[in-house]
Design a protein around this nucleic acid. Structure first.
Length: 636
RNA sequence: GCCGCCGCAGCUCAAUGGCAGAGCAGCCGCCUUGUAAGCGGGAGGUCCGGGUUCGACUCCCGGCGGCGGCUCCA
C-alpha cells in the first residue's frame, strides 16, 4: 500500500506504507539523510525511526532548526545521565531538558560531583558517542512504567509518572543499558552527538522549589561538529568581554566594594552617563505630561502597614528607629507618591495626574542573587504613578507602552514583553485581579504586542506588564514594567471629585521605563560593549598632541570643545602617539583628535573615530558642528 | 538563603608546608615621537579571625566577599 507524504515545500512523494522517516529523508537527499535529527508528522514531533502509516505532512529537522537543536541537546542529556550512572551507580535521575544553548541534567547522588569528575563524565560520554548506541523508543503502560522505575529505585521518575495526566501516553527511551522516562523524540543514535562539552556544575532544587531537596545539576552543550563547539566557546569568551562588571572597572564607571555588597558606587564617569540618561528622561517625561516629585527615603511604619508592604514585603525591607518609633527605608516609591496625591483635593478635570520620581529604593535581596548593577540592594527607579479615572485606564496603559517602546528604540534595544498575573501572596479579591489583568491584556492586544504570560509573577497589589532586555550572555532582565492597581487607592482612601460633585475612587498605574537606572546602565554597557553613543559617552573627545610642542594648540582645541559643552580631555603626557591612541581606543572614546605641527599651523584637527579609524584632517569648527549634531540627535 | 567553585599588587595571573614572583597600569628619568604597546629605574601584595606546625599564601575550622547556578525580583 502506498502513502502520500507532503513536504514543507508543498511537493508530494509516495512511499510504501511502513517506510521509516529516516528512509524518506535519505531518499529526498543524501545530505538530509545524514543531517536530519527528527521530524514532525502532521505537526507532531517524532523520531526518524517512525514508520509511515498513512498520508501525512512531514517536516524534517536538522541542527539548523530550533526543533532539531532541542532534540540534539536533549539526546545529549540522556547520554550525560547514562555516563553518570555508569560511573556513579546509585545516582538517581531527576530531569534533563534542553535549554537555550545546551542542556542540563539534575541528579540525586550519594557522591558530590567535582570539576575533576566532570572531566571523567565527559570522557565517558564521549565513549558512549563512540559506541554509537541507537535510541530506542519503548511505549509503556502506566503500570509497566511505574514498576520499571520502582524496581530501578528511580523515585523521582516514579513521582513524575504519578503526576502525568490520566490519559497521557507514557514512553521511555533506551540506549544500550540505559533507559529513561521520556516523551522524546531523540536523534537516531548516540553517534550523532559528535562534539560535546560539560560546562558547569550547580545546585538546583527538585521541581524548582526551595522547600525540596537540592539536587546536583550538570550543564553542558553539544554540536554536530567540533568547529561549531569551538565557535560557540569563542563567542562566549567574546561576550564576557562585554560584561558590564568588567567594563565598569575598565572604564571607571562604577564599583562595588566589600563595605557595601549590592550597594554600587558610581564614579565620575559613570555619573556622566547616568546624568545624561536622566536628562533625556526628564525631557521626554515633561513633554508627555508628567510632573516630577521626590519623596523621602525613610517613612513611618504606619505608612507601610497601611500600604500592605508590612504584611507582604517585610522580608525585603530595611528598618530603623527614630525617637522610639519604627521607620522603614522605602522599598518602593508608591506610598510616597500617594501621600502627595492625597495632600490636596483633585477634580476629575485634573486627571490623569502623572507623578514621576527618580526614586532611590532599598530592598534586601538574598546575597546569592546579587549581580553587578543588574541585581543590587539599592537602586533608583525611574518611577511614575498615574492617578486616573477608570475610563482613562486603557489610554494611559497604551501611552506607557508607547513610551517604553520609544525609549528602547532610541538605544536600539530589542525587548520581550510578559504579562505577570496574581501571585500567591496578594492583596485584594479575585474579581479585582481579573479586572486589572484583563485591562492589561486588552491594552497589549490593542497594540498587537507579542507577549508571554507569567503566572503568579505579579506584584502583591496588582498584575503587571514586564519589559525584558538581554545582557551579553543572553540572560534577560526585567526593566520596564506597568502595574495596574485598584488596591492602593482603596487602602489609602484616594478620591477625586466627579462631575456629580461626589467623591470617587481613582485607579492607579505604577510604571518604570528604564526599570532602575543601575540595571539599565548595566544593560546599556553590555549592549554597546562600553562603546557608548557619543551623547552618552563619559568622554566624547580626547585630544592627542603628537609631541609636547603642540601642547598649547592641544589646550586651545580642548578649551574650544569644552566651550561647546563637549566632554573633552587632553592627553598631555609625554608619550608616543601610538601609545596615546591605543589607550584612548581601549577606553572606547568616540573621537580622538590628533594634533601635530600640520594641524597647529592650519587650525585643523586629524580626526580618528574609535571604530571607523583615521578620518583625515578637518577644520576644528567643522568637527565641532559635526559632533554637536551627533550629540543633539542622540544618534547611536 | 541554598549548591558548587574561588579569594595573592590598582588590573590579569604565577608560587602545593621552607626568603612571595611576572606582565600591564601608576611614580621617576631618558627618548620629542604622525594613527593600537619606545627604553631604563624604583615603589607596591597573601580578605578577616582562630587552629595545626619549628615554619602556613599553601592544611583545618569559622566569618566576610566574589563567580556560576537554584529560588526570588527592577
Amino acid at each position: 500500500m502506498v502513502v502520500k507524504v507532503t513536504l514543507k515545500d508543498g511537493s508530494i512523494r509516495e512511499y510504501q506504507k511502513g517506510t521509516t522517516l529516516a528512509r524518506v529523508a535519505a531518499d529526498i537527499s543524501g545530505r538530509l539523510g545524514r543531517e536530519a535529527l527528527a521530524a514532525s508528522l502532521d505537526g507532531r514531533l517524532v523520531d526518524l525511526a517512525t514508520p509511515l502509516e498513512r498520508d501525512a505532512g512531514v517536516v524534517f529537522y536538522t541542527f539548523d532548526d530550533e526543533e532539531g537543536r532541542q532534540v540534539f541537546r536533549h539526546s545529549t542529556s540522556h547520554v550525560l545521565a547514562q555516563a553518570v550512572q555508569r560511573l556513579f551507580p546509585g545516582t538517581r535521575l531527576a530531569i534533563g531538558p534542553a535549554i537555550a544553548d545546551g542542556f542540563y541534567y539534575d541528579f540525586d547522588s550519594p557522591v558530590r560531583f567535582t570539576p575533576e569528575m566532570l572531566e571523567k563524565i565527559q570522557a565517558e560520554m564521549e565513549s558512549i558517542v563512540e559506541e554509537d548506541l541507537s535510541f530506542e523508543r519503548l511505549d509503556m503502560s502506566r503500570q509497566e512504567a511505574l514498576e520499571f522505575f520502582r524496581r530501578a529505585g528511580e523515585d523521582y521518575k516514579v513521582e513524575l509518572i504519578n503526576d502525568l495526566p490520566e490519559n497521557a501516553a507514557i514512553s521511555c527511551y533506551r540506549q544500550g543499558e540505559f533507559t529513561d522516562l521520556c516523551a522524546g523524540p531523540h536523534v537516531p543514535s548516540t553517534g550523532r552527538l559528535k562534539s560535546l562539552k560539560l560546562t558547569g556544575l550547580a545546585g538546583a532544587y527538585w521541581r524548582g522549589s526551595e522547600k525540596n531537596k537540592m539536587l546536583q545539576r550538570i550543564y553542558g552543550t553539544s554540536f554536530p561538529r567540533k568547529s561549531m563547539l569551538d565557535d560557540y566557546l569563542f563567542r562566549i569568551e567574546e561576550a564576557k568581554k562585554r560584561d558590564h562588571r568588567r567594563l565598569g572597572t575598565e572604564l571607571d564607571l562604577f564599583s562595588i566594594q566589600e563595605e557595601g555588597p549590592g550597594f554600587p558606587f558610581f564614579h565620575p564617569k559613570g555619573m556622566v552617563l547616568r546624568n545624561e540618561l536622566e536628562r533625556f528622561w526628564r525631557e521626554v517625561h515633561r513633554k508627555r505630561g508628567y510632573q516630577e516629585v521626590r519623596t523621602p527615603i525613610i517613612l513611618n511604619r504606619s505608612l507601610w502597614e497601611r500600604s500592605g508592604h508590612w504584611d507582604h514585603y517585610r522580608e525585603n525591607m530595611y528598618f530603623t528607629r527614630i525617637d522610639d518609633s519604627d521607620y522603614a527605608v522605602k522599598p518602593m516609591n508608591c506610598p510616597g507618591s500617594i501621600l502627595i496625591y492625597k495632600s490636596r483635593l483633585h477634580s476629575y478635570r485634573d486627571l490623569p495626574v502623572r507623578l514621576a520620581e527618580l526614586g532611590l529604593v532599598h530592598r534586601h535581596e538574598l546575597s546569592g542573587v546579587l549581580h553587578g548593577l543588574m541585581r543590587v540592594r539599592c537602586f533608583t527607579q525611574d518611577d511614575a504613578h498615574i492617578f486616573m479615572l477608570p475610563d482613562q485606564v486603557k489610554d494611559e496603559i497604551t501611552g506607557v507602552i508607547d513610551l517604553v517602546d520609544y525609549f528602547y528604540s532610541v538605544f536600539g534595544f530589542k525587548y520581550r514583553v510578559e504579562l505577570s498575573t496574581k501571585p500567591e501572596k496578594a492583596m485584594g479579591t479575585e474579581e479585582i485581579w481579573e479586572l486589572a489583568t484583563g485591562a492589561l491584556e486588552d491594552a497589549l492586544k490593542s497594540k498587537e504586542t507579542d507577549y508571554k504570560v507569567n503566572e503568579g509573577d505579579g506584584a502583591f497589589y496588582g498584575p503587571k506588564i514586564d519589559f525584558h532586555l538581554e545582557d551579553c550572555l543572553g540572560r534577560t532582565w526585567q526593566c520596564g514594567t506597568i502595574q495596574l492597581d485598584f488596591l492602593m487607592p482603596e487602602k489609602f482612601d484616594l478620591s477625586y471629585i466627579g462631575e456629580d460633585g461626589q467623591k470617587h475612587r481613582p485607579v492607579m498605574i505604577h510604571r518604570v521605563v528604564f526599570g532602575s537606572m543601575e540595571r539599565f546602565i548595566g544593560i546599556l554597557t553590555e549592549h554597546f560593549g562600553g562603546a557608548f553613543p557619543v551623547w552618552l559617552a563619559p568622554v566624547q573627545v580626547r585630544v592627542l598632541p603628537i609631541t609636547d610642542r603642540q601642547l598649547d594648540y592641544g589646550r586651545e582645541v580642548t578649551a574650544r570643545l569644552e566651550r561647546e559643552e563637549i566632554r573633552a580631555e587632553l592627553d598631555d603626557r609625554n608619550e608616543k602617539i601610538n601609545y596615546k591612541i591605543r589607550e584612548a581606543q581601549g577606553l572606547k572614546i568616540p573621537y580622538m583628535l590628533v594634533v601635530g605641527n600640520r594641524e597647529a599651523e592650519n587650525g585643523t584637527v586629524a580626526v580618528r573615530h574609535r571604530s571607523a579609524g583615521d578620518l583625515g584632517p578637518a577644520g576644528l569648527e567643522e568637527f565641532v558642528s559635526r559632533i554637536r549634531e551627533e550629540i543633539r540627535t542622540r544618534s547611536v
